[in-house]
Write a protein that binds this DNA or RNA. Structure first.
Lengths: 154, 154
DNA sequence: TTCCTTGCAAACGATTTGCATTGGA
DNA sequence: TCCAATGCAAATCGTTTGCAAGGAA
């Protein structure tokens, strides 16, 4: 039997495993399931959504603890959506830099990537704006509000 | 005594008064104080900050109700910061379109405006990205993360 | 054994709401 | 007068934490 090529999800999982190992944090079953689920998602998930999406039941308190551990290990990044709910996604060193598309009708949040050239333009703009106000820019976040196709079809 | 020229804050207050009138919503003292305070702020304020900043004590529950009324009347816009706390600011039809600078050290959020030309470039980019994913863009939000001068001096 | 991780239940903090009271057009 | 606005206290909801039990090294 031939050796299988790594799927992107596999590569993510291996990278996470390495990172956790080097931080002396165990890669338990629940943690692995969370990483896998987020790797398969199209955008950041709220704790409740993740709770639904997991292949096996995990109490919310445990899930939150898992998320906290993975966030501290910089495996996950946490944001808050327009309703103030925490949303979790794989950190950008695992997925690449990207932005979010938010459907104002159903609340879905979806990843979008920008070409490196455009991203560079944005970064330059952002740095300029920041320094003009006495800030040193370290990053940026762009949320595009809109309506998804499904909601428009309703 | 000569008639005083309207200050920007006055103009905002008059515009708000007109809007509330046409929506049959009273412009009470507390509501006026909230609008004035937000008009004088450098960025969106959390309910707690607003509570501190108001010239006279207003119970938090009343403050939240005031904020809800003003938000429904589209006088205020509400966002959530990185910690998930609600932050309120005057709606963009009163202040103009702008973005936010967020100090990752002290949490301060400050308004920044972008030149119309740049803003137009951003809008075009955003529309393109959205439609590529089947979305129709209706707006965008840019948060610039960084460190403010005060925090850098520490 | 010795930590780390789990699950349940209780605690939390921001925000919201029920209800009786107050106040302005 | 009379409905809207207020203040207080209690309820909500997402999230966090204390503590005892279970698991892996």
């Amino acid at each position: 039997m031939a050796i299988m090529a790594d799927s992107p999800a596999d590569r993510v999982e291996q990278a996470v495993a390495a990172r956790l190992r080097s931080h002396d944090v165990r890669f338990t079953t629940t943690r692995r399931l969370v990483v896998r689920t987020l790797a398969g998602a199209r955008g950041p998930l709220a704790a409740g959504e993740l709770h639904q999406a997991l292949p096996r039941a995990v109490p919310l308190s445990s899930l939150y603890r898992t998320l906290a551990v993975l966030e501290e290990s910089l495996v996950l990044a946490k944001q808050h959506d327009d309703l103030g709910m925490g949303r979790y996604e794989l950190a950008e060193w695992l997925t690449g830099h990207h932005h979010h598309l938010v459907c104002e009708s159903c609340g879905e949040v979806r990843d979008v990537t920008v070409s490196p050239e455009t991203e560079q333009t944005i970064t330059a703009l952002v740095s300029r704006l920041a320094s003009r106000a006495g800030y040193r820019a370290t990053g940026h976040r762009i949320d595009i509000q809109g309506t998804c196709r499904a909601c428009r079809a309703l």
